[in-house]
Design a protein around this nucleic acid. Structure first.
Length: 228
DNA sequence: AACCAGGAGACAT
DNA sequence: ATGTCTCATGGT
């Protein structure tokens, strides 16, 4: 059960992550779009701008002029593209009748619907499904590919859907899958932030026996999550 | 001062 | 199906 053992290793090292950062489902959705290829610290500033202008709602975002929205989103980078994508998402979201209405859909149809929004790809969609709609989908990001490639469990270049299916099936027997998947993805990202990013190019994979997650305060260990 | 961050779409091959 | 380019701010 390598997939479960990896989770146990990370959980033992870091404990519960209590993700996603965001006070409401809608804030989670906004964060999911804004964090595309972007550091979360930058996303926080953009969300703070929306809040400061009482515009963290689909209605306000749809009503805002593109220029205004782009200005608010500026700290999160790609602000013109993200203003467009966030606008697309909010118009779709309102047209579908909002959270309650969407919640009535089964997981796969809901996922297909979210994916139909231009600017929402598989990872963003799964962030939204998992953390805003509490659906048991496994999020595959660049870190996940890198870690499990180095552990030797995947090739690393499989299509997104292939990996999502693999992870979900290897963990299909577990209960509380929404909580498990949510913690798992959070732990992987946290591992990259709090450990790997501080030790770039250390030469191996942190999750192998020869490169285990160190005890708190320990400085040794090897990791190449941030690599080449 | 390069490097890269919790990707996705357009386009060519 | 599979590569390459673009988009952009901010921290290390």
């Amino acid at each position: 059960m390598p997939f479960e053992r990896t989770f146990d290793t990370l959980f033992a090292a870091y404990g519960p992550q209590d993700w996603w950062p965001g006070e409401t489902p809608f804030e989670v959705m906004v964060g999911a779009v804004l964090t595309q290829n972007t550091a979360w610290s930058n996303v926080e500033k953009a969300i703070a701008n929306l809040k400061a202008n009482d515009s963290l709602s689909p209605e306000a975002i749809v009503a805002a002029p593109r220029e205004q929205l782009a200005a608010w989103l500026r700290p999160s980078g790609y602000f013109n593209i993200k203003a467009e994508r966030l606008g697309n998402y909010c118009r779709w979201y309102l047209a579908q009748g909002g959270y309650q209405s969407l919640s009535a859909l089964p997981t796969e149809p809901l996922r297909a619907a979210v994916l139909s929004v231009k600017g929402v790809g598989p990872e963003t969609a799964d962030d939204i499904l998992l953390y805003a709609f509490d659906r048991p989908v496994f999020v595959i990001d660049a870190y996940t590919r890198r870690i499990f490639q180095r552990v030797g469990l995947i090739a690393g270049d499989e299509p997104y859907e292939t990996l999502r299916g693999l992870f979900e099936q290897r963990l299909a027997h577990r209960s509380e899958r929404v909580a498990l998947f949510g913690e798992y993805h959070a732990l992987i990202v946290n591992h990259a932030k709090d450990y790997c990013r501080k030790r770039p190019r250390c030469g191996g994979c942190c999750l192998q026996a020869s490169c285990s997650v160190p005890e708190a305060g320990e400085r040794s260990g090897r990791c190449s999550l941030v690599s080449e």
